[in-house]
């Protein structure tokens, strides 16, 4: 009798945990997953409260300050009568700290929007390809092969050369470049799943093609998409920063980290602080997504633990 009640206790406890919460709990126990969550959580807070944290407007020109002035921090002995500038003043006499803080918004938006775009289009292409088969599958997959025959950043550069420079075009280019990865992933998932019994059962019960695809087949691709998407955000942020650094992405005076580095790359010997801070910002953001992606891969996809622990 006692045993049965113990058993029901365990069963109810188990059923109370939703899969998402269960995954989050595992993620929190995973060392890189935890580090990723902390870094990204902090970053999201900074992005949300940017106007509160930043003492100045990111594009405001501070006429009274010396251009490329070194950081002035009161706690570290900067005279109290001077205005405090934690990261110093940039080449256009703007407060660098405010610019770096506001840059977090742009960077997160860039990563999430490009990946959302790539995942949606990639999923559509992959699903259609696997579902339709035949010549359509061939054409779509050969196109993906060709896109993958270019180093991704260079293809993005080539696409920007067609669309013209600018932040939106750069994002579009990075999004397009990331499509093949997701298309292939979804295609292979759909191919392995589409003839399994539970799909056949659904078909036998008279479910429509759309219902089968979206409700029965595609949910199987969600886990790998989350993992690849998270790691993809890291790459997208790096690539977007690179395009802006080269002068092909965000235009001044936008507070974009890559652009800040590009604008001040020649001051590295005279004003290194202008290069160091935006770079650290990029590094931590990318590190956050990489760690989270590694953690997610380890806990969600036991088959792929190879590159992790």
């Amino acid at each position: 009798m006692e045993n049965t009640s113990e058993l029901t206790e365990i069963v109810t406890q188990a059923s109370r945990q939703s899969p998402t919460r269960e995954a989050l709990r595992h993620l929190w126990r995973h060392s890189s997953g935890k580090a990723g969550i902390i870094i990204l959580g902090l970053l999201i807070l900074i992005a949300i409260f940017a106007p509160v944290i930043a003492p100045y407007d990111p594009t405001q020109l501070l006429k009274t300050e010396i251009r490329r002035d070194t950081p002035c921090i009161h706690l570290l002995g900067c005279p109290a009568e001077r205005e405090q500038h934690l990261f110093g003043i940039d080449g256009n006499s703007r407060d660098l700290f405010s610019r770096v803080i506001f840059g977090s918004r742009l960077s997160l938006q860039v990563g999430v929007t490009t990946m959302a775009f790539a995942i949606v289009i990639g999923t559509l292409i992959g699903a259609v390809s696997a579902y339709a088969g035949g010549w359509l599958d061939n054409i779509l997959m050969r196109t993906m092969d060709v896109l993958m025959a270019f180093p991704s950043l260079l293809l993005a550069i080539a696409i920007v050369s067609i669309l013209g420079t600018g932040l939106i075009n750069a994002l579009l280019a990075i999004g397009i470049v990331s499509i093949p990865r997701f298309a292939r992933l979804v295609r292979s998932t759909v191919l392995t799943v589409k003839d399994l019994e539970f799909v056949q059962a659904s078909r036998a019960m008279g479910a429509s093609g759309m219902h089968i695809l979206f409700k029965r087949i595609l949910p199987n691709a969600v886990t790998p998409l989350i993992v690849q998407g998270t790691l993809g955000i890291a790459t997208a942020i790096l690539d977007a920063a690179a395009l802006s650094f080269l002068g092909l992405g965000a235009e001044p005076p936008r507070p974009e980290w890559g652009l800040m580095l590009g604008e001040e790359k020649n001051s590295i010997f005279s004003a290194p602080h202008l290069v160091i801070f935006p770079g650290i910002a990029i590094m931590f953001t990318v590190l956050g997504f990489n760690l989270l992606g590694d953690g997610l891969r380890d806990i969600l996809d036991p088959r792929l633990t190879r590159a992790g622990k």
Partner: peptide, 9 residues
């Protein structure tokens, strides 16, 4: 996680 161009600088 480091941008190549930043590491270069």
């Amino acid at each position: 996680s480091m941008p190549v161009f930043w590491l270069g600088l």
